[in-house]
Amino acid sequence: MSQLILIPARLRATRLPGKPLADICGRPMIVHVADRAQKSGLGRVVVATDAAEIAEAVRAHGHEAVMTRADHESGSDRIFEALTALDPKGDVETIINVQGDLPTIDPETIAAALRPFEDPAVDIATLGVEIAREEEKTNPNVVKIVGSPRSESRLRALYFTRATAPWGEGPLFHHIGLYAYRRAALERFVKLKPSPLEKREKLEQLRALEAGMRIDAEIVATVPLGVDTAEDLERAREILSKQDRA
């Protein structure tokens, strides 16, 4: 399959303004994400942004950037605009959406998101991790996948929720918000209106499920660090500083 990794990035952020350009070990955070996406070996990597400062920083470190509108409500809308600009002939078959606030993500974790596409019935692929810490099972900020096992490392997603689910004995799975789309699925998804359960749970992926689209999740070993606060940023700096010294 022809594949394209797109990394949406904007300067507006309520908890950590300007975070794509936050310095981590001498490089902007968005550059670390692009570096790791490149190391996944999946293909072309492009940062999709509405800020000239981000585009300039990305290009200064040898990566590609494309400008998009500033009024997008979601990252999926931004990557679709980028896709149509970068590939107007429709040659790209698969799009991987890597969040721009994952500076320590393992390149192999990015690659794992494509594995569910071994099944041609899958429209959208994503990632999950088995929850080990009890407090995360009841934390509404930890989104859970309710799914039907397809193998030891894969679930067919039936629902996503902030609640503790499913009930009863057995593992719970933390959803990682990294997605891979078949092109037709992304085109369909961005044309859909926000759905009732999406608005209730505040989870965009429920729009796809309510429309009858199939999402499968590959289960990986660890949750990548998402940088949302100043404390997260310091942790990312510590992690990458240790890796640089290793």
Rank of each mutant, 00 (worst) to 15 (best):
Q3K: 15
I7N: 02
P8L: 04
A9T: 07
R10I: 14
A22F: 01
D23Q: 09
P28A: 08
I30K: 07
V33Q: 08
V33P: 00
A34Y: 00
R36M: 05
R36K: 13
S40D: 08
E53A: 15
E53T: 08
A55F: 01
A60C: 04
A60L: 06
H61C: 08
V66A: 13
V66Q: 03
M67W: 01
M67P: 00
T68I: 14
D71H: 05
G75H: 03
E81V: 02
E81M: 02
D87Y: 04
I95Q: 04
I95V: 15
N97H: 15
D101K: 05
P103W: 08
P103R: 06
I105N: 07
I105M: 10
T109K: 06
D119Q: 05
A121L: 12
A121I: 03
T126E: 02
L127V: 12
L127F: 11
V129C: 10
E130T: 13
I131S: 03
E135H: 11
E136H: 15
K144Q: 12
S151Y: 06
L155H: 09
L155V: 08
A157N: 05
R162W: 02
T164V: 01
A165Q: 11
P166H: 07
E169S: 13
P171F: 11
A180L: 11
A184K: 12
L186N: 04
V190G: 03
E210H: 05
E210M: 10
A211S: 12
G212V: 06
R214A: 13
V223M: 14
T229Y: 12
E231I: 11
E234Q: 14
R235N: 10
R237S: 04
Q243T: 09
A246M: 07
